[in-house]
Design a protein around this nucleic acid. Structure first.
Length: 877
RNA sequence: GGACACAUAGCUCAGUUUGGUUAGAGCGUUGCCCUCACAUGGCAGAGGUCGAAGGUUCAAGUCCUUCUGUGUCCACCA
């Protein structure tokens, strides 16, 4: 009797396993100093506002496969979980929430707003963690970290102060990307380029001394003209050279501006003359500095024009654009409008068009950091998969620009800088320390005020691999678990996060934080579109878990992972069906073997007593074991799961178990069938942890934590090429005969006599024809010279099995026939071909001429055999 | 504008590194089977000029060139 429920029910199993894992905490990592050592990975911390989506599901499944595998291989595995405070994103969520109460963060005030944020975090912050947990992720949940934990903040401050002291952080007035909706600065990476169809407006700027004359400038943002302080031309441009130094009158504003010469100007674009707005464009800003121009800011931080905009004061920037065009038209200053496709930067959080804005911000000097990261990269750290991203990564390191790290929001790490009344900054981890610095400067205590801004979220995330371990404290964990082994993430954040983590790791830990970076694809819908709420095409992983189980979700996901992953609901049936098959095969085994066959491992089997199918399946098993281990080590999970799928379903169930049915009485065969299935559960465990552990526990007769069990041992002596070859023949035979049966309409209950070619059967095969008989329900074999035939004993109808070509030379006949025909036409080429093929087989330096001659003889002989065979087959039809 | 990747069956992808039998799998589809582990199953079939055109080679899905299409990343031409 089976001890396993007759039906596979993922929900019950998964709930049960999760509860068990919560009780026993098998994923908790300590510095046990196992002989294999530590194996660490850190989770890419999801935003605390996050809700589990397919991207998370994939990302965490991949990590879980590796950590479970490594645990089974004896490592002290630490998989560090946690969440990111996600500055702007979280603040947006809570701002929306208080907006419902008619409040804004300004009316609420900083302190109360922060309180609301923390309340929100307290209430909702665990959502995504719980969902990852449900997926089966074997994280060390006891260590769950948050990027705004008190000790994590210590790490952030330490890094800021230290980088400042090393001269790598500075404050300055620059053009930065500004989001007028979020009202904060953004890093370059946070301002995404998106194509848009705009216009190129050509505007006439008149000369001061010749109001009828004019210079035409072209612009895509006419509203910025209010802040123009020059017009620039290329010094080599014949059209304008004589005008350099002349004065123009800015339309609408009537400010006098000069024509300057600058190499930056492209003569071929637009009119060849550029309006220069140093406070609202990064290029113009640089020109403004070169030529000592005035910087006129025409905009409030929220995108409304200010008093510098004259009569356009109070208009929104895009409203102003319309008004200005209208005014220019009225004044006859608008020469023409060309449509112009270009890309516009948008806020990565709210998609608002970013405004280049002049403001005082804090920056990290990236060049020195990037150079070290680049050197490490050249030395092979980290390796990036797929390889094509390595170049992208490298280019970014080379062309790096400074990183704007201050944000004008409230949710985040407050910048550890205090100012005196004169605005002199004092950088220190605490106000007390800053006071000491201030006292040293002023000779007395002075009142200080902390910088109101917070740090970019990524300024804390980039410390994740070591700050989560307790750094800057010199903890045991930091020493033992750093550096981590691999980082699994999406390519989108290679610059935001991956590259910066490498820099921080090198700078503060003297070592890159991970050896490998694995960039996985984007999860898309069945049509290849990105999943998004607005499209309504998102597949919810939690629903999939509910419907098919987490195992099914994981298996289907990994099975489908190519470059990008195309997902639809039905694809999860594959995973569910596989788990179900595993369930039923296990039931079958437990039903069919005696208790004493339930041995611990393969060493308990007397191999001499094994039947051919068992020898064969052991051989296949050992191959699968080798290949799967390699695939996991090399992060080729899709292949790994394919190997196991094929081995378990195709080899073990479809062939082995079918062959063994009815002759399953030998204790050694039973042991083999049992242990192989048990070890297959182990090999599958990293991919589908729930059902494998449940079944394994049934096999063992006791609850077993499978990730703590040892990975099956390699055993090369299991490889059995003779058994392999023989069973291949059996499979060929049975396929052919089944086919014949179906073609000839022979019912399974009909008696069949099978006449087979005997000459190629080796002794092993002859001894095992009973397997075939049983498998095919064939009553007898007639072994004689000739060809295979299937006869319906009931009707007397007989038919040739023309598709049946058993093995060896006869198979070659059909192949080589083609070759020989070539030979007749082009003897020279054919000879070269044979030579080439022999060389391939390792005959290169061994008197090829003789071998070729021999080979030719063989081919000729095979050809005659081939035609004989064809004749015989033809006569039968 | 720059860089990279991809193109194989109706769909999603292996196979290309190192050229070598008859190009594979899953899903879908067609036919036959509820055979006592499993119909979430079994067996069999149909379906591919490997994006196009050249080239190298005895031999090209695999190497080279060009083209076409798709996708991704980067980017301060106003």
């Amino acid at each position: 009797m089976s001890e396993i429920a007759s039906r596979y029910n993922p929900k019950d199993i998964e709930e049960k396993r999760l509860k068990l894992w919560d009780e026993k905490r098998p994923f908790h990592a300590t510095a046990k100093r196992s002989p294999k050592g530590a194996f660490t990975i850190v989770i890419p911390p999801p935003n605390v506002t996050g809700v589990l989506h397919m991207g998370h599901a994939l990302n965490n499944t991949l990590q879980d496969i590796l950590t479970r595998y490594k645990r089974m291989n004896g490592f002290d595995v630490l998989w560090m979980p946690g969440t990111d405070h996600a500055g702007i994103a979280t603040q947006n969520v809570v701002e929306k929430q208080i907006a419902k109460e008619g409040l804004t963060r300004e009316t609420l005030g900083r302190e109360k707003f922060m309180q609301r944020l923390w309340e929100w975090k307290q209430k909702n912050g665990d959502t995504i963690i719980n969902q990852l947990h449900k997926l089966g992720s074997s994280c060390d949940w006891d260590r769950t970290r948050f990027t705004m934990d008190a000790d994590y903040s210590e790490a952030v401050k330490e890094v800021f102060v230290e980088l400042y002291n090393r001269g790598l952080i500075y404050q300055g007035n620059y053009i930065i990307n500004w989001c007028p909706r979020c009202e904060t600065a953004l890093a370059d990476e946070e301002a995404e380029h998106k194509d848009s169809n705009g216009n190129l407006w050509h505007i006439k700027y008149p000369f001061k001394d010749d109001p009828e004359g004019f210079v035409v400038v072209a612009t895509t943002r006419p509203e910025t003209m209010l802040g123009d302080t020059a017009v620039a031309v290329n010094p080599a441009d014949e059209r304008y050279r004589h005008l350099i130094g002349k004065t123009l009158v800015l339309p609408l504003i009537k400010r006098e501006i000069r024509i300057i010469a600058d190499d930056f100007v492209d003569r071929d674009f637009g009119s060849g003359a550029v309006k220069v707005t140093p406070a609202h464009d990064p290029n113009d800003f640089a020109m403004g500095r070169r030529h000592n121009l005035e910087f006129i800011n025409i905009m409030h931080p929220n995108g409304i024009l200010n008093k510098n905009a004259g009569r356009f004061d109070g208009l929104d920037r895009f409203e102003a654009r319309k008004e200005i065009i209208k005014a220019l038209k009225e004044e006859g200053r608008l020469l023409k409008i060309d449509s112009h496709a270009h890309s516009v930067r948008r806020c990565y959080r709210c998609d608002t068009i970013v405004e280049p804005y002049l403001s005082k911000q804090w920056f990290v000097k990236m060049k020195p950091l990037a150079e070290k990261a680049h050197a490490a990269f050249k030395a092979g750290k980290p390796r990036i998969q797929p390889k094509r991203w390595e170049k992208v990564y490298e280019n970014w390191l080379v062309d790096i620009r400074d990183w704007c790290i201050s944000r004008q929001i409230w949710w985040g790490h407050r910048i550890p800088v205090w100012y005196d009344a004169q605005g002199t900054p004092f950088v220190a981890k605490t106000e007390a320390e800053a006071s000491i610095l201030a006292k040293a400067k002023h000779g007395k205590n002075v009142p200080l005020k902390q910088d109101p801004d917070v740090l970019d979220t990524w300024f804390s995330s980039w410390l994740w691999p070591f700050a989560t371990l307790g750094w800057p404290k010199k903890t045991e964990d930091v020493k033992y678990f750093y550096p981590t082994a691999a980082l699994f993430t999406a390519p989108e954040i290679i610059f935001f996060w991956v590259a910066r983590m490498v820099m921080a790791g090198i700078e503060f830990m003297d070592e890159p934080p991970f050896a490998d970076v694995i960039l996985h694809g984007t999860v898309r819908d069945a049509k290849g579109r990105k999943m998004s709420k607005s499209l309504g095409n998102a597949v919810d992983p939690l629903e999939i878990i509910e419907q098919y189980g987490a195992d099914a979700l994981r298996l289907s996901m990994v099975l489908n992972s190519g470059q990008d992953i195309y997902i639809s609901n039905e694809k999860f049936e594959v995973g569910r069906n596989f788990a179900n098959k595993l369930w039923n095969a296990s039931r079958f085994i437990l039903m069919n073997i005696r208790p004493e066959a339930r041995v611990a491992d393969l060493s308990a089997i007397n191999r001499a007593g094994l039947s051919l199918p068992s020898r064969w399946v052991l051989s296949r098993y050992s191959q699968a074991l080798t290949e799967v281990g390699l695939a996991i080590e090399q992060y080729r999970y899709s292949e790994g799961v394919n190997i196991l799928y094929e081995f378990f379903w195709g080899t073990y169930c479809d062939w082995y178990l079918e062959m063994m049915k009815g002759r399953f009485d030998d204790i050694n065969d039973q042991k083999a069938a049992y242990v192989i299935l048990k070890n297959t559960l182990k090999m599958l465990h990293p991919f589908i942890p729930f059902v494998t552990e449940e079944l394994y526990s049934e096999f063992e007769g006791a609850e077993t934590i499978l990730t703590l069990e040892p990975w099956p041992l390699h055993d090369d002596t299991l490889v059995d090429t003779a058994a392999d070859a023989s069973v291949n023949i059996l499979i060929d035979l049975s396929t052919g005969i089944r086919n014949a049966r179906s073609q000839w309409g022979i019912k399974p209950q009909d008696e069949i006599t099978c006449i087979l070619t005997a000459e190629h059967f080796d002794a092993t095969l002859k001894d095992n024809l009973d397997v075939l008989k049983r498998l095919l329900k064939i009553s007898s074999f007639d072994l004689r010279q000739g060809n295979a035939r299937v006869r319906n004993a009931a009707t007397g109808v007989a038919g040739p099995v023309t598709f049946f070509i058993p093995l060896g030379d006869v198979i070659d006949v059909t192949k080589e026939r083609v070759r020989i025909e070539v030979e007749v036409d082009q003897q020279e080429k054919a000879a070269a071909g044979i030579e080439g093929r022999l060389a391939n087989a390792g005959f290169v330096n061994k008197a090829p001429v003789d071998v070729i001659a021999k080979e030719r003889e063989r081919l000729v002989e095979l050809r005659s055999k081939s035609s004989d065979l064809r004749k015989t087959l033809a006569s039968l039809v």
